[in-house]
Amino acid sequence: MSTAVQIQNLSFAYGSKQALHDVSLDMPARKVTAFIGPSGCGKSTLIRCINRINDRISTAHVTAGTIKVHGIDIYRKDINIQELRRRVGMVFQKYNPFAKSIYENVAYGLRIAGMTNRSDIDDAVEKSLRNAALWDEVGDRLHTSAFGLSGGQQQRLCIARAIATEPEILLMDEPCAALDPLATLRIEELISELKKKFTIVIVTHNMAQAARCSDQTAFMYLGKLVEVGPTMKIFENPSDPQTEAYITGSFG
């Protein structure tokens, strides 16, 4: 089993505020790794390091450690960031489709990657929408505004958009935070479908969701990785008392 993402002794800071302390873990390829932990513990910060989207914040920087994606240190000076982000897709905590048509939303990544052939794009759009379990609902109105969709549909559209460029790794930051239980269920089904092709990293506040759809779970607290292990073990027999307290809801 190969390792998709390898984080070694990572420390990360926003200006002088240290947000991650010495985090190390491996994420196996074509498995789902879930991050759980109380609000503000650095889950988003950590997964945003994996596609270097944190670079946008001028004060943010890695203070120690490395992240390797399929063996390559992604904080090397000579990394092609655009290519990295194409290989490491991301779905954001708050769904954020563009104010464009459904079709243009999904085609966006393909277009900026330089794909121009109309029928290739058509095919890729249909494929991603099918993979995101959205085709049946929107296939007949591809050219209407994405804002006409429900919240759950918009989030699935964002997933379709992220997988259109066929990344290796898909980072999902609380993809179900704004969704109702039914939409959540659909996205969970989607994740178990997607993991046949992609390595998935998911952040969630929903214990049951982490238990249901992940293979490996990591518990974070105050910027530190407290415990990581197979999901079954973390939920049934955690070795750290903090993890146990958090999972059982008696934390704090």
Partner: peptide, 22 residues
């Protein structure tokens, strides 16, 4: 919205592509 920029960058857009298209 900031989300437009994030999404475009996260899909491998350059800064200028992001500004021009999103």
């Amino acid at each position: 919205p900031q989300g437009f920029r994030d999404a475009s960058l996260a899909m491998g857009g350059t800064r200028w592509q992001t500004i021009r298209k999103c």
